[in-house]
Simulated assay, not measured.
Amino acid sequence: MIQLTPANKRYSSKNDWLESNFSFSFGPYYDSDNIQFGPLRVLNDDIIQPGKGFGIHPHREAEIVSIVLNGQLKHEDSLKNVGILQYGNIQRMTAGTGVLHSEFNPTTDEETQLLQLWFLPNEKQLAPSYEDISFDTDKLRNQLLSVVSNNPGENTAMIHQDVTLYLSKLDSQKEVHFQQQEGRKIYLFVIEGEVLLNGDVTLQKRDDARITDLHDLTLHAKQDSFFLLIDLPGGEA
């Protein structure tokens, strides 16, 4: 089954420094039918204005992944990690028993655009930890590139959950195939472009698809496209 959510059906929030689009219940948005998909609990699509951001705030019992699409994101935390992320970087933070951190746009003239995802961990009371990795953006072209996994390789961040996150940039009229074990789930989010799924369902910019009981996918780019695909464990949520 493919459950398609068009971009214009997401809940949006905007103030003078932050524009957020929520794919799942978060903050001011609550829908009892849209809490999570498997262990994927949050996908926020944010734009942060120059010199602005989130001050020190706490997290617990979550695996937090940040993917910068444009601009820069400066991170500081109570583990004494400091870093600046940009396109080509992935950040993974295990909040575990508790961590404090801040995130802001350190530039004076450029918006920061990012995706932030939260996953429920496969184990509670983990020690907080932090990792940021760089990936070769050329390796996204016309293939699926693993950037986060519970079985990581080179240039792949490790996560405490049975998930793998792939990014891909498909040239117009190119396609990739994805297969997974039965009983699992797939989440697909189109960052840019237009993607035809199994010759039947079209996803446009910022649309998502929640896929169950379908484990063999063909993704065809109807125009130059950029997307995130997540291989998730099965379950009731």
Score class of each variant (00 low, 15 high):
residue 176 V to S: 12
residue 132 D to W: 09
residue 136 D to A: 04
residue 105 N to T: 02
residue 181 Q to E: 15
residue 169 K to S: 13
residue 132 D to V: 06
residue 131 E to F: 05
residue 175 E to L: 15
residue 125 Q to I: 00
residue 159 I to L: 02
residue 132 D to N: 10
residue 121 P to C: 01
residue 118 W to I: 14
residue 119 F to T: 13
residue 113 Q to D: 08
residue 171 D to I: 02
residue 174 K to D: 06
residue 118 W to C: 08
residue 164 T to F: 01
residue 117 L to W: 10
residue 171 D to Y: 07
residue 147 V to M: 00
residue 166 Y to A: 09
residue 177 H to L: 04
residue 144 L to G: 08
residue 171 D to P: 05
residue 114 L to I: 14
residue 127 A to T: 15
residue 153 G to K: 11
residue 152 P to E: 06
residue 153 G to W: 01
residue 143 Q to E: 11
residue 166 Y to R: 01
residue 109 D to A: 06
residue 147 V to Q: 03
residue 144 L to I: 03
residue 173 Q to M: 14
residue 143 Q to A: 07
residue 134 S to Q: 13
residue 114 L to H: 04
residue 134 S to Y: 12
residue 140 L to K: 05
residue 167 L to M: 04
residue 178 F to K: 07
residue 137 T to Y: 01
residue 130 Y to A: 07
residue 162 D to G: 05
residue 176 V to H: 05
residue 112 T to K: 08
residue 103 E to D: 10
residue 157 A to F: 04
residue 167 L to E: 03
residue 158 M to N: 15
residue 113 Q to T: 15
residue 146 S to L: 00
residue 116 Q to K: 08
residue 104 F to H: 15
residue 135 F to L: 01
residue 146 S to W: 00
residue 166 Y to D: 05
residue 123 E to Y: 12
residue 168 S to D: 06
residue 113 Q to R: 15
residue 161 Q to M: 02
residue 121 P to Y: 05
residue 124 K to Y: 07
residue 133 I to M: 09
residue 171 D to G: 09
residue 167 L to T: 05
residue 128 P to G: 00
residue 127 A to R: 07
residue 116 Q to M: 06
residue 107 T to W: 14
residue 181 Q to S: 11
residue 104 F to I: 07
residue 110 E to P: 01
residue 117 L to R: 08
residue 157 A to E: 08
residue 174 K to R: 12
residue 144 L to H: 04
residue 118 W to R: 07
residue 124 K to F: 01
residue 138 D to N: 15
residue 146 S to E: 12
residue 141 R to H: 10
